[in-house]
Simulated assay, not measured.
Amino acid sequence: YKMGFTTDLGENDVIFGGEKKLYKAILELKERYQPAAVFVYATCVTALIGDDVDAVCKAAAEKIGIPVVPVIAPGFIGSKNLGNRFGGEALLEYVVGTAEPEHTTPYDINLIGEYNIAGEMWGVTPLLEKLGIRILSKITGDARYNEIRYAHRAKLNVMICSRALLNMARKMEERYNIPYIEESFYGIDDMNRCLRNIAAKLGDTDLQERTEKLIAEETAALDLALAPYRAR
């Protein structure tokens, strides 16, 4: 569902600039793949030579009629966390709040800073679904462009990697009045605490009761599965 491309800058492009090459590449991508949006990541080289990525993206968007989002984080600006932060700010500026979901529920949440690198979300999502908690947007693991567009309608932001995108959660609280909590999915205690805190923050007594019941059931099942290993 996501593809990456490069403009393959050569020596002449470094000397004379790569803006025309980038513009042409964006138009070609639109024609060949029909994406919902195009995200353009600046590299160290284009930052050093001063290419105006913002201007190219604006001109290309007007030409092809879909969003072309500049992410000005050359080489992801040193640390991964700093680059992710600038990526989050690009989403806030160009994507979040640009569409509305078909419907909302009192139990809509966003997961921010969750990248599903090892597929861990595939184990967490069923637990939330059992409680009737809907993940409105995932930023950015398994994300879809249109989901992120209506992330501003969530009732709660759940931060999983706070260092990287905490600024995004704070700004969404300022702009859209969405509270946030900082949680972890790793380990039994953290997972149980996360479920309890989500239920408490959503403010539904029935949900809190169902959460305690689910935790008891899942913990019992896990203890049974681990019993043969603990006996060794």
Rank of each mutant, 00 (worst) to 15 (best):
Y1F: 07
T6L: 06
D8Q: 11
G17K: 04
E19M: 09
A25Q: 11
Y33I: 13
A36E: 15
A36T: 13
F39V: 15
V40C: 12
Y41Q: 15
A42P: 00
A42C: 06
C44L: 11
C44A: 12
V45M: 08
T46W: 08
A47C: 04
L48P: 04
G50M: 10
V56L: 10
V56K: 02
K58E: 15
A61F: 03
A61R: 03
E62F: 00
P70I: 04
A73S: 15
P74V: 13
F76T: 11
R85T: 08
A90N: 10
A99Y: 06
T104Y: 00
T104C: 05
P106W: 13
Y107T: 11
I109E: 12
G113Q: 04
G113S: 09
E114S: 08
G119I: 09
V124Q: 02
L131N: 10
R134F: 13
D142A: 03
R144C: 09
N146T: 14
R153T: 15
M159C: 07
L165D: 11
E173T: 07
N177T: 03
I178T: 01
P179Q: 03
F185H: 07
L195D: 00
L195K: 09
G203E: 10
T205K: 06
D206F: 01
Q208A: 14
T211S: 05
K213M: 10
T219R: 14
T219N: 14
A225H: 14
A225S: 14
P228E: 13
Y229Q: 14
R230W: 15
